[in-house]
Design a binder for these strands. Structure first.
Lengths: 355, 355
DNA sequence: TTGTACGCGTTATCAT
DNA sequence: ATGATAACGCGTACAA
């Protein structure tokens, strides 16, 4: 506990007024009127004494803790989670809210236990962050507390949620390739059927369609979403005649792109001269470490954390009546392209630009 | 705020005793004695009602919040920070403590402001985590609160701190190489003069000395601690006659090792057949993504977070008198080797094993 | 315009 | 062996 003993009484005594007046002035109470002169005096002495209301006493009185709990699966095991936390934290600070952290496993029982623990700490609301974009059903104990989901959506839309625009991200990625003149673009994708997989495929197809290049299923190959999977998939999609071979690869994530780099190297394909690559996730460790540096698409983790906290704050003030609102659409935040050095125009292959 | 209205009074009424008795029993108060029978009854009804003490009221009464603040520079921008948080969080939970997060910049003024904010939230103690191992002087406002440092040490040893055993880590890394028969081992290191640089160099030299191989300054080359730096350094150290060239490289961190992989590839050196490499940091994204997977040394981030929270908890109970203790030695936690596929025996070069 | 006194849910002290 | 009650620091209805 802080050693400082400066309380509201000290301020009152020092300023020669009652605690009521101090409280009124410092909390900007509507109806309470004080002379401008005392207002000033109270504020300045409070400042001078370094007074700040004891949050615990205030919480007890107001029946709200001003703490919000961030419940996260396998917290920050991934750099992504860190950005979410950061975004939420800064937004919380701006509103005078405090962020408390609870990490939980993906086990149903653990989640139940951990949320209960969170609630016992009287958090005013909770942010529930999953490790990657997917659908969940809300832990039962969270139904009684304002909650917003990060990187996942609830089945029934009963709570607000925010997710990345997977499709839009894939679209800009593929469009970057198309803009450089590529027409045969491979898609090294993930074999898990999660929203990200579906969304990125949709974005890939949409970009192709808009550019009027026909979708060729032989150019999309799915593997596990790790580096070795990326390698395998890239080998397979690249292993064909020069004329038939894609001139560019869109990879499901940066790890798979890392595998694709190796495949390209083994095949004697230089990046980006012989093969352009764009990834997804903007894992800086990888994207900046690869040579040449990887052009990729950033997931808006910081922004999601920020948005979620804002939504939660609103939910918390309007709790009384608007609790009836029971159908939220997920907010989808856009995924910006970050250009580095892995994209260039294709080499003039055989001549014709048609397919 | 949680909706649940079950308070101590409810338990008391339900169990047919006074709140005093309930409090005594649930808090295991020494001197207060109650019949075993009521004990049982109280405990079971508390359980049945799902009672948990209101932490805010308890804090107000006990004059301690049971919250500890984690002040971190650029929180979780790095995956490392995440592991620290995780370790601290789990240790906190075990003790019934709550972790609140504050991120701060490295700017002196911001730190001051942020710590003040933290203290106003009546945290009982603070963990101060820096982004990488270095020396700092403690923000003034933290002198009044139990504090422990993570990944940094204070100039004057006035607070406990925990740091990784850089030297020991480097020692096991180089020893792994020596154990496989390498004698000419290059060191691709960092040009910044930070504790990690000094410690890892010391470990390198100690391992060499113990194996009775002479230290050759031409084999250590320093560059910026990023991937391109690793590439440059590795090129430079590898660019010599076959007989003179090191058969293995110890890299300052995994990013530099990533650069070294590229250098090796360009030189036509296969890993680990022609060149063994070991890194430092165990950044899984890189270490597992490289091909072949990188043998490296893990920084004990989780353990540091855990240790720090334990130390802080002790500091908090013994605050009264032992505040006099004013000279702490940093705790140094060991860095284990994690073996993957980048180390093998050197190829029989010219024949002689001497230097 | 300002001050007094009570309540928030616990724990701790002191009676019984 | 158990219960009544003050106190923690603040906010606020109500009296002055």
């Amino acid at each position: 506990m802080a050693r400082k003993a400066v309380g509201i009484k000290d301020v009152a005594r020092e300023a020669g007024v009652s605690v009521t007046t101090v409280s009124h002035i410092l909390n900007d109470v509507e109806f309470a009127r004080a002379s401008d002169e005392t207002r000033e005096r109270v504020k300045s002495t409070a400042e001078r004494l370094g007074y700040g209301a004891n949050r615990i006493a205030r919480s007890l009185r107001r029946q709200q803790s001003e703490m919000i709990g961030l419940l996260s699966e396998e917290i920050a095991t991934t750099p992504h989670a860190g950005r979410i936390i950061l975004g939420a934290q800064e937004a919380a600070r701006k509103r005078g809210l405090t962020l408390v952290l609870i990490n939980t496993s993906r086990d149903e029982l653990d989640i139940q236990r951990d949320t209960d623990a969170l609630l016992r700490q009287q958090v005013d609301g909770v942010l529930y962050a999953t490790m990657y974009h997917r659908e969940i059903d809300l832990p039962r104990s969270l139904r009684s507390v304002p909650t917003v989901l990060i990187d996942s959506t609830s089945q029934d839309g009963s709570v607000p949620s925010v997710v990345p625009d997977e499709e839009g991200g894939a679209y800009v990625a593929v469009n970057e390739l198309i803009g450089h003149g590529h027409r045969r673009i491979g898609f090294v994708t993930n074999s898990d059927d999660v929203p990200a997989t579906r969304g990125r495929l949709a974005g890939y197809r949409r970009a192709l369609a808009e550019a009027e290049v026909e979708f060729d299923p032989r150019l999309v190959v799915a593997e596990q979403s790790e580096t070795p999977g990326g390698y395998k998939a890239a080998r397979s999609v690249l292993d064909r005649d020069r004329a038939d071979r894609p001139t560019a690869l869109f990879c499901y994530n940066d790890r798979m792109a890392m595998g694709a780099y190796r495949a390209a190297a083994e095949l004697g394909l230089r990046i980006p001269a012989d093969l352009s690559i764009v990834g997804f996730d903007n894992q800086e460790l990888i994207a900046e470490g690869l040579y040449p540096a990887l052009t990729t698409v950033a997931l808006p983790h910081f922004e999601m954390g920020e948005w979620a906290l804002g939504a939660l704050a609103e939910l918390m003030v309007g709790d009384a009546d608007s609790a009836a609102k029971d159908s939220y659409q997920p907010a989808v935040l856009s995924c910006p392209l970050v250009r580095r050095d892995s994209v260039a125009a294709p080499r003039p292959a055989g001549g014709s630009a048609g397919d």
